[in-house]
Design a protein around this nucleic acid. Structure first.
Lengths: 334, 334
DNA sequence: CTGAAAGCGCTTACAG
DNA sequence: CTGAAAGCGCTTACAG
């Protein structure tokens, strides 16, 4: 037996409009009537059909999430944050990651064109021309996570790469009195990597430490590039006292290289990274790094998105979350 | 300007029924008519509204996924597998994890009662009475991941804990000629842990190795319990040649303990785990373990679910995926 | 406080 | 091969 609003209305002796009002609990309904409807509903195990409601209200109370890839703990935590925030507001989340077969663009079009979601949280490593067009044309709000600075007219929640990197390097300088500090950069087209590099240079400059090209090596955010970056720097002309890796995965590569070369961290050389991935906790000594608050990234994005949808006012906002310094043993502390 | 089926129909000079047919591409439509509709649609950027379609067809082409918790790489990969499989079939995925505030039960009721999803993939650590009732009453199909054996009437995709654990232990016996093999168990109420323990005991028995209670220690699947389990066994009366940990996190604890105690793995003692978490790859030496195919777990579950929904036949099936042995250096190989 | 009725954007059996 | 019309299960402006 199918239980719909009609059935409940019939059994409660009221119209479907009244039943509807009871469940949207906005309009006034006489308490007795309400009680009766609720009682019948419970008996019948009735739950309003959200699909029908969505069609009628022209809103789904669902947000779409588009991530570049569903692998990796970083994205996992973002989804976690998103899910938590959405739940608080009683919203649903549809997740979609881009695979080889499906690109971000396609998913975005799908989400935007259809009435399936009321808004989208988008994390795209880079925004190209076509994507930009879709975004500009879009009627539904979009909140970005960790996008570049080019998106002036949107809400963008991101990490403070610059200052956080600055703080890591300054820790080396102020606390440990190092002045030969190596740096293994990230990919040159990566937004995060660029900001982190700027932080490194600025920290040196502010502390009157001359920048030495011998101490800087390019990397790719991979374990391997950290491994080779470490070896190169350590065998270079200028021997660094410390090396700052633009992300933790590269620092992991450094641990491997150090082990092979019988170099002790931090006695022989200090190390720091960026991200605070779970793996760090298992490194011996623990890696000194900047903690990226992934969970917050997700939950803030959702909260902003729902605000925009509900209030229907277009907001422009850049929220920058700090990545606080996490001091482990790899820098020489402890 | 709102673009709906009516608008497209008007501009293409056909009825909405025809437009609908073009997009459901089931019914025959004259090629020229179809081309015309498609052209107009493209111009207008028209995409059929899936909400309206769902209401009309009484099916959503969306599956709900309920996981005990959205944290941890294990679940991440499951979602990844689910998402991939769903995408292949052009279905959507709504994810929901249980938090402190929301339990699995509540989410299940929500999914089942409403017309929001056509079926559910459920991963629950244990199935209690109330949950069982909901499950039994449910009209929509449910596919379980890693549930116990009690669910005879459903599709259940799971890991072959028993045989995989057996293989790990047998590797110690056959390949390395060990006969003093320690074991750190998982939680006693955990289904996976129980099966893995059985595998350990059976491998010993089949190889005529006497079971020695001194060599078995209880653990909690945590790093800490692995740490203390390792210490206890290594300082026990019977010194083990090898220790099998019921999961990798506990083995990680063993690495830490070994380092502290200046014990070399595998020279002084061989180690093996179960799960093949990402962390393993960074352990030195790499951990020997059983690889749990999480991705497959997710994708198989979805594929079964969609099959059931589409064919509308109730299926009962227990699909058991092997967790193949991954040989690292921790057992003494290499 | 409540009901009749139009409407949300589709699908599909029926008729032609 | 195509169209008119009923229907999917709700919401909500309007009238009372």
């Amino acid at each position: 037996m199918k239980i719909d609003i009609k059935e409940v209305a019939k059994r409660a002796g009221v119209s479907i409009a009244t039943v509807s009002r009871v469940f949207s609990n906005s309009d006034a309904v006489k308490p007795e009537t309400k009680a009766k409807v609720l009682k019948i509903s419970r008996q019948l195990n009735y739950v309003p059909n959200p699909i029908a409601r969505s069609l009628s209200k022209q809103s789904t109370e669902t947000i779409g999430v588009i991530l570049p890839d569903l692998a990796g703990e970083f994205f996992m935590e973002i989804i976690h944050g998103i899910d938590e925030a959405a739940y608080k507001h009683n919203w649903f989340v549809i997740v979609s990651s881009s695979h080889s077969k499906r690109n971000i663009l396609e998913t975005l079009v799908e989400f935007m064109g259809s009435g399936r979601v009321d808004g989208v949280v988008l994390m795209a490593p880079q925004i190209d021309e076509r994507m930009n067009e879709i975004i500009k044309k879009s009627r539904r709000p979009i909140v970005f996570i960790n996008a570049g600075n080019e998106l002036k007219d949107f809400v963008n929640v991101k990490i403070d790469n610059f200052n956080s990197a600055y703080n890591v390097v300054e820790h080396f300088i102020k606390k440990h009195k190092f002045n030969k500090i190596g740096f293994v950069e990230g990919p040159s087209n990566n937004f995060d990597a660029i900001e982190r590099a700027k932080g490194y240079y600025k920290a040196l400059a502010d502390n009157k430490i001359k920048i030495n090209g011998e101490l800087v090596h390019s990397g790719e955010f991979t374990v391997e590039s950290g491994y080779s970056g470490f070896k190169t720097l350590i065998q270079g002309k200028v021997k660094p006292e410390a090396i700052f890796f633009a992300n933790d995965m590269m620092a992991v590569g450094a641990y491997q290289a150090a082990k092979e070369m019988n170099i002790n961290i931090p006695a022989d050389i200090a190390i720091a990274g960026f991200d605070d991935i779970i793996l760090d906790q298992f490194l011996v000594p623990r890696l000194t790094t900047a903690h990226v608050p992934t969970l917050d990234l997700g939950s803030k994005a959702v909260t902003h998105l729902i605000d925009i949808i509900k209030k229907k006012k277009k907001k422009t906002l850049m929220e920058i979350l700090p990545a606080n310094l996490v001091v482990g043993g790899s820098c020489g502390c402890k």
